[in-house]
């Protein structure tokens, strides 16, 4: 009986801790919104973060987008061949990329690359008192450190998703047309017929939301780091796990709402 009550106790505590953490992240988000509209807008810091989150992620996004499109074309071809519907491969790849895989894979890759770096950088700044130093110099750390990262995440994720969508479709074309001998005209025609702009826009809205999640979680975890080098490592891991899970869970609900 004691074991059961201890297990229930632990479960209850975990649930309460998670709810408390969600509340803290939400409070940070409100604080970010308030500091975002308060001048001056620190453009230099925003562009620096946009370069880090966006420009420096292009290579990895091109790579994952291209190979995802290629493998989707290959798998789709084996399935559609059974029904002599190989020409649908192009539209399947395009729909899959624009609605789901483009935004989700881009968000997961950027989480691994930039979300983790945000947590590690802010975490290191926290444990070495650099964030306290900012406060002492009458500079708000949320305005100076977090707002530029959130803006960069929200702007650059849709931009990277466009790259990922394009490269995925290009990869699908490369596998479908020259390698699997699908008719090029049918491949492209089915894309234009079945994919409308709404699919792309909704995918980009998702991407912006994922950009918010990964930067907010990365910054929150880094900003609240305690316990030296070990704490920084823990914060980084937790940021990647929490942001990735949040992206996948919210993807379901966003899809249910939008499509």
């Amino acid at each position: 009986m004691n074991r059961i009550s201890a297990a229930v106790d632990r479960f209850g505590r975990a649930v309460l801790d998670n709810i408390e953490e969600m509340g803290r992240i939400f409070i940070l988000f409100i604080s970010v919104l308030m500091w975002m509209v308060r001048p001056p807008l620190k453009l230099r810091l925003i562009f620096k973060q946009m370069e880090f989150v966006g420009v420096k992620s292009i290579f990895v996004v091109v790579l994952t987008g291209t190979f995802t499109g290629m493998v989707m074309a290959l798998q789709g071809y084996y399935g559609f061949r059974m029904f002599n519907a190989e020409s649908l491969v192009g539209s399947t790849v395009a729909l899959g990329m624009t609605r789901e895989l483009g935004p989700v894979l881009t968000a997961l890759m950027v989480t691994a690359r930039a979300g983790s770096a945000m947590a590690a950088e802010l975490g290191t700044m926290r444990v070495t008192e650099q964030i306290d130093a900012l406060s002492v110099m009458a500079t708000n750390p949320v305005k100076h450190l977090i707002v530029p990262r959130i803006i960069a995440g929200v702007i650059m994720l849709p931009a990277l998703t466009i790259v990922s969508d394009f490269m995925g479709i290009l990869g699908g074309y490369f596998v479908g047309v020259p390698i699997l001998n699908i008719n090029a005209g049918a491949f492209i025609k089915n894309i234009t017929k079945m994919v409308d702009l709404g699919d792309i826009y909704n995918g980009l809205i998702k991407a912006a939301f994922f950009g918010l999640i990964l930067s907010l979680v990365g910054c929150y975890k880094g900003f609240n780091t305690t316990g030296g080098a070990e704490g920084v490592g823990k914060a980084t891991t937790e940021a990647v796990v929490l942001a990735s899970v949040s992206i996948l869970v919210s993807d379901y609900f966003l899809t249910a709402i939008m499509f």
């Binding site: 070495t128 008192e129 650099q130 306290d132 130093a133 002492v136 009458a138």
Partner: peptide, 15 residues
Amino acid sequence: RKKFGMLFQEAALFD
């Protein structure tokens, strides 16, 4: 805080 300056234990320079 503008009246204050502070030297931290490890200096807390922005690296």
